[in-house]
Design a protein around this nucleic acid. Structure first.
Length: 639
RNA sequence: GCCCUCAUAGCUCAGGGGUAGAGCACCCCCUUGGUAAGGGGGAGGCCGAAAGUUCGAAUCUUUCUGAGGGCACCA
């Protein structure tokens, strides 16, 4: 006899073996129809599986927790895709096909590449398979028999996967129609349950087992949802992301461009550079207020220094080099060794610590061509870098201060949500356990006291010290890793940094490597996407457009523009012979936050009509009042 | 770096073995119109680069470069 306890506490007793489907049917025909899977003592099972023992159970339907249902659905979609692919191209090998966020993929091995037409054909076949409503059955196989089966089908990848499944795990195969696949499950009871709210989205290459030394497989990506409405919402989300794409907006708003001759390095246009300088000025001000000193170090440094710092050995492949006077120089990929050189000038006393040394350091790194991505991944960039030289005892307070500085800065840029990832000691590391204890404890305390949510990343610290990585969340929920704080015991040693302590003896300082924006390029890319180009007044490259309705307003418009400029605002004056409708449209497209229109009326009474970006409303104000309000709003944080 | 796709005017794109086309943007003229496109005219391209096939290549082939989507990488 089996006793099954439902979520509401009700206990059902069965004398014969029952499956989840049986129980659902027993409870009611509606549930039987809606049932997708069953939860058995917390684990998700197929409906067809026999429930052997007493258990707490819950029938899973489409109404259940999003993540669970969507995962089931997407995993099934991957199987249906594989079935479709096998039907259409019998010569291919299937490998793996998991559910991922927003969808699923399946990796295939095939000599001939898939074409976009193949993608359409596979999608069409998937819909057919759903309509066939094939029953999905679970089978437990003997390991060797399963390996033989897949080998006989020419599915060598599958055979390889089976042979690596731990011995104590059962080998389960799922059959739907003619298609049989190795899978942990669970699956929906039949292919019809998938429904039609899915779409194949893209073709891509992917290495077998994610290793670049292996064969490149062909990956087919798709998205799958419970219903058409959700699918549409998802596609809409993609459009929204595309609308915000900084590469597109960068061109449309005339902020920057890239070209072949300098792949991965931005050409900043006047408007983009204005934005850049605004961000830079803000950072300079904020860092100075936080007790940093700013420095500037050389771009091109002899390899001797990189050898001493250890970069030459570890990162040489990614460094640009140049030769002259029979010496090899490298464009700096980081600023830290140079900062230590400044620290090392003269004799440092403990009284000078913590020494917070900042640089807007222009760095170059050779990034693989395939990884370049607009401003987000570039080869030439400027870090908002700084190194804090301090004692071990100061790690705690410096970290805490840093966390506060960072959240304040993110907030000023409109990012409220910050998450941290805390990476502690790796297996192979420098420094004593005692020092690591101290450093880890300091970082963890600080991030907690700063009220930042954090997750643990055990063993992922740098060999020279633990670190905190900071992620901010943007307006459409995407996360970007920008800030970092790394404790370093090694570099001061390698480059022989020291200070005289209270005891008169020489000591090694600890170095905290830290950045908040990460790189200006990337951060500005994120800002563009965050605001979809519609910047708050203080950041907008052009803050006010002064437009005229008729030429009667030209003289007054010039006066208005001049007044605004004197008040420190970035203004364009548009006295062209276009109609006001056209001008409003033009400057709205340019995402100018404030459009002022002046005509005869305004010229006569010395007022202006202001229209804010995104609003259809106009506000009529006296010129003085308008200048005061706009310049007040345009004031950058900290000024 | 690897796989797939792409590269035609400033932008978005059409065309396609017989030396190029639209809309917007740009310039000029007319229009002075009260809040998201008034009208007319003009200028603008060696069709990403190189080689090959061909009587003839923007079009076909190959290589290269760059871009897009992934994978790998990301001190």
């Amino acid at each position: 006899m089996v006793a099954l306890t439902l979520p509401d506490g009700q206990v059902r007793q069965y004398y014969a073996a029952v499956s989840g489907a049986d129980v659902a049917a027993d409870i009611g025909p509606g549930l039987a129809k809606a049932a997708l899977a069953i939860r058995v003592n917390g684990d998700l099972w197929d409906l067809s599986r026999d429930l052997g023992d007493d258990a707490d159970i819950a029938i899973v339907t489409a109404k259940d927790e999003d993540a669970v249902v969507l995962d089931l659905l997407r995993h099934d979609a991957a199987h249906v895709l594989a079935e479709a692919a096998k039907e259409l191209y019998p010569d291919i090998q299937v490998t793996i096909g998991p559910a991922i966020s927003d969808g699923f993929y399946y990796d295939f091995s095939r000599d001939e590449p898939f074409t976009p037409e193949d993608l359409e054909a596979m999608e069409a076949r998937m819909h057919e398979i759903v309509d066939r409503n094939e029953e999905v059955t679970r089978e437990v196989w003997d390991r060797d028999a399963a390996i033989e089966l897949f080998k006989s089908m020419g599915e060598h990848y599958k055979a390889e996967i089976i042979s690596e499944i731990p011995g104590d795990e059962p080998i389960t195969l799922y059959r739907q129609g003619e298609f049989i696949d190795l899978c942990r499950g669970p699956h929906l009871p039949s292919t019809g349950k998938l429904g039609h709210a899915f779409k194949l989205t893209k073709l891509a290459g992917a290495y077998w087992r994610g290793d670049a030394r292996n064969e490149m497989l062909q990956r087919v990506y798709g998205t799958a949802w419970r219903n058409e409405k959700e699918l549409k919402a998802y596609l809409h989300r993609l459009e929204e992301a595309e609308r915000r794409d900084h590469r597109r907006l960068g061109r449309e708003m005339d902020l920057f461009h890239f070209q072949e001759e300098a792949a991965g390095m931005a050409f900043w246009h006047p408007k983009g550079w204005t934005l850049y300088r605004t961000v830079e000025a803000y950072m300079r001000r904020t860092l100075e207020a936080a007790g940093y000193v700013e420095v500037k170090t050389p771009q091109l440094v002899d390899r001797m220094l990189w050898e001493a710092s250890g970069h030459w050995e570890k990162f040489r492949e990614n460094m640009y080099t140049s030769e002259s006077e029979e010496r090899i120089f490298a464009l700096k990929p980081m600023n830290c060794p140079c900062h230590v050189q400044i620290f090392n000038q003269g004799v440092k006393s403990y009284r000078e610590l913590p020494l917070r040394m900042a640089e807007f350091g222009s760095c170059h790194r050779y990034e693989p061509s395939g990884s370049l991505h607009g401003l987000m991944r570039v080869r030439g960039f400027v870090q908002d870098d700084a190194h804090i030289f301090c004692t071990e005892d100061q790690i705690n307070s410096e970290t805490k201060q840093f966390c506060e500085l960072l959240t304040g800065i993110y907030r000023d840029f409109g990012f409220e949500e910050v998450q941290a990832r805390f990476s502690d000691r790796p297996e192979v590391r420098a420094g004593t356990d005692e020092t690591w204890d101290k450093a880890e404890g300091a970082l963890r305390n600080a991030v907690e006291e700063a009220g930042i949510d954090y997750t643990l990343n055990p063993g992922d610290g740098a060999f020279y010290g633990p670190k905190l990585d900071f992620e901010l969340t943007d307006a459409i929920g995407r996360q970007w890793q920008c800030g970092t704080l790394q404790v370093d015991f090694v570099l001061p040693e390698r480059l022989d940094a020291e200070y005289t302590g209270e005891d008169g003896a020489r000591h090694r300082p600890v170095m905290l490597h830290r950045a908040i924006l990460g790189s200006f390029e990337r951060f500005i890319g994120i800002l563009v996407e965050q605001y979809a180009g519609g910047f708050p007044l203080w950041l907008a490259p052009t803050q006010v457009a002064v437009t005229t309705i008729t030429h009667d307003g030209d003289a007054f418009a010039s006066e208005v523009a001049e007044r605004l400029k004197v008040a420190g605002l970035r203004v364009v004056l548009d006295t062209s012979a276009e109609k006001i409708n056209y001008k409003v449209r033009l400057h709205s497209h340019a995402k100018v936050p404030a459009i002022i229109a002046v005509g005869k009326r305004e010229a006569e009474d010395g007022s202006v009509s202001i229209r804010r970006l995104g609003s259809k409303e106009q506000q009529s104000l006296a010129l003085d009042e308008a200048v005061a309000r706009l310049s007040d709003e345009a004031r950058a944080p900290g000024t």
